[in-house]
Amino acid sequence: MARDRNGASEFSRPVRTILVGLIVVALLGVFLMWRIDNPRVERMRMAVMDRFVPTFDWALAPATRLARMIEDFESYTRIYEQNQELRRELQQLRAWREAALQLEQQNARLLDLNNVRIDPRLTFVTGIVMADSGSPFRQSVLVNVGRQDGIIDGWAAMDGLGLVGRISGVGERTSRVVLLTDTNSRIPVIIQPSGQRALLVGDNSAAPLAQFVETPEDVRPGDRVVTSGDGGVFPPDLLVGQIALASDRRLRVRLAAEYGRLDFLRVLRSAPAERIGDPGGLVGLPMGGASLDLVPGRADD
């Protein structure tokens, strides 16, 4: 068993090099397959995640809890300022709540008067964030709802307030949400008071860029940014955030969703918008005798 190390390596090194070469070629083959047939390999990846992450749930849960506790403990140091701040905010929010209640009642009355039918499509599935992407160059999270909950690729994910990201990759019990800050994220948006259309482009920083704004002069910091629904992937009018002007004079969007604390995510079920395909038909009296009979009938009433 005990061989001379140097003698052994003299003999086995060429064999080993060939072996290593073969393995490297095989692995690069996997990489090329991913490059060529991306959806298939990504489905495979989701299947692996589906296996791997729930298996380690027992380890993830306490680790997550501990990390959050440490984070919370750090915030104790500035608890006084926080308290003052919260009081102020609460005061403002009370006023807003009052206004909102009144408006809601008024709105309900007006809707009732007008017999408006509200769009019933936007229902949602809520999922818990299970895991991070684990890689510094990817901004995504894994949530614990998947195909068996009816999740479909491309649906929007929000926290209570704002848009968080888009479903990309669905497993049986888990699915991946690509955050707006990821470099692969591109969302069509509208900047609110001026109605300018733009593209929200993630660049791995906390505030994504707003690109392709037609007349940037009309856009001011603080303007609301909502999804535009262009392309039919996202429902329109989901709150994204506010415009901010970066130090390099580029327009960025400060996100409304609280990215520091993504615990629960709402995945919006969105049906594709219905299209009106055929041109309008000829409007007039229907052909045939039956419709003509109706006319005296109505006159009898």
Partner: peptide
């Protein structure tokens, strides 16, 4: 190795930007 992998998956402020690596 598995431990290292699981630890890097812990969602500590998932949206936070971390140092790469």
């Amino acid at each position: 190795a598995l431990g290292v992998m699981v630890l890097s998956l812990v969602p500590v402020g998932p949206g936070h930007l971390r140092l790469p690596g």
